[in-house]
Design a protein around this nucleic acid. Structure first.
Lengths: 130, 130
DNA sequence: AACAATAATGATAATCATTATTAATTTTGG
DNA sequence: CCAAAATTAATAATGATTATCATTATTGTT
């Protein structure tokens, strides 16, 4: 079981930093932003708290975009669109995908509990600015 | 542009190793298997050739499962099911997902070029062997 | 308010997957 | 066979993330 969490200003700051940034930042970005409010905060503390917040379900981790983990304060079910030019991440509504036919999976004996979708393409900025 | 590829026994071995293993192995696994046929092959050579084969479209790279890249000799369009217990990866047919409604994305100015879906759940083995 | 138990921090070392470097070898076309 | 260029093996380097550890902060209880 996870150990009992005690309050900490740093964890609070990490969470607020994530919530105040619409982007889907990396640990490094959160570290830089958090430092503006607490110059003494350590990178390890940011990593530790991000992981704890993921563990507790307060935020989500996004893997596989580049070689860094990104973090998302939006815990509602949704998907992501990643621009293949600039790498920025956009949210996509959950209902873009209709009900799936899980029969083929069930026939194989697979029990589907969830699914993630990542869309790839070009964002408005990269389309317009050539 | 990519440079001209010359034949190499090692690249051949890496590709064959991938094709002969139904699993979706990591570079480490390919390295271990390839070593059985060529004990002198280097890990860097395996990485280099895996990346070249991805580049040339002969294989695909799967990111975001764990902290390691997995490789897939199946270049047909398909999705993946990852068992949350054992981590094994299973193929899912492409037609499990019906046509998507891309209107919401287009209204935001996003141009969708492709999408990946990863299913998560329990595989038959992990379900049966409790 | 002081105490004891334990979680959290900051600083930094360690880890681990992947990539870069480089001298020697292999491939390929002429 | 030759020369140009790609490939290799071995290993160092990189970069994100995690572990370690002495010190500090939090929390519940006297």
């Amino acid at each position: 079981m996870g150990r009992i969490l005690k309050y900490s200003k740093q964890r609070d700051l990490v969470l607020k930093t994530l919530q105040e940034n619409v982007v889907h930042p990396t640990a490094d970005f959160v570290y830089a932003k958090a430092k503006e409010h607490n110059p003494n905060i350590s990178l390890a503390t940011v990593y530790r708290n991000l992981n704890q917040l993921v563990e507790s379900g307060d935020i989500k981790k996004i893997n596989g975009l580049d070689n860094m983990a990104h973090f998302d304060h939006n815990t509602h079910k949704h998907f992501h669109f990643i621009c293949t030019k600039c790498g920025k991440i956009f949210d996509m509504p959950y209902d873009i995908v209709p009900e799936l036919n899980t029969k083929p999976a069930e026939q194989k004996g697979l029990i589907i509990e969830s699914y993630d979708i990542s869309f790839h393409g070009i964002c408005p900025d990269c389309r317009d600015n050539h």
